[in-house]
Design a binder for these strands. Structure first.
Length: 113
DNA sequence: ACGGTGACGAGAT
DNA sequence: TATCTCGCCACCG
């Protein structure tokens, strides 16, 4: 496994319960704004008994993208709802409410916040 | 070093 | 607003 995957997993582990991040956001934080697909792939590559909260990552539309894991949709949604995350009638999460205010690209740095 | 692949994202119609 | 098409990056053989 490459280092990038490790960074993705480590970062996803920083997402608190009840919050969600987007693939693009994760990629952006890792200074690879165009590697959103790779982020998804990193989660796709996760084993079953993992501690990584992969379910807290959704697409830019706040929707669930579990291509390759058809039942993954229900699984991810259940896990999120179990944390208090609500879904719209369209099966999407309101990132304005549940979006994770993660670190900026490169890390927390010297930002005054 | 090269090519195929994928849990994305933005632009055009 | 919904749907289709292309590009991008990193991983693996």
């Amino acid at each position: 496994m490459g280092d990038f995957f490790q960074r993705v997993w480590a970062l996803v582990c920083q997402i608190p319960p009840g919050k969600v991040a987007t693939y693009g956001q994760i990629a952006d934080i890792l200074r690879s704004p165009l590697a959103a697909r790779t982020v998804g792939w990193a989660l796709h590559s996760l084993p079953e008994g993992t501690d990584v909260p992969w379910h807290r990552v959704v697409n830019q539309r706040g929707g669930i993208s579990t291509s390759g894991h058809p039942q993954g949709y229900g699984v991810q949604r259940r896990l999120l709802e179990a944390e208090g995350v609500e879904f719209h009638g369209r099966g999407q999460v309101d990132l304005r409410i549940y979006g994770w205010d993660g670190p900026p690209p490169g890390g927390w740095g010297h930002s005054k916040g």
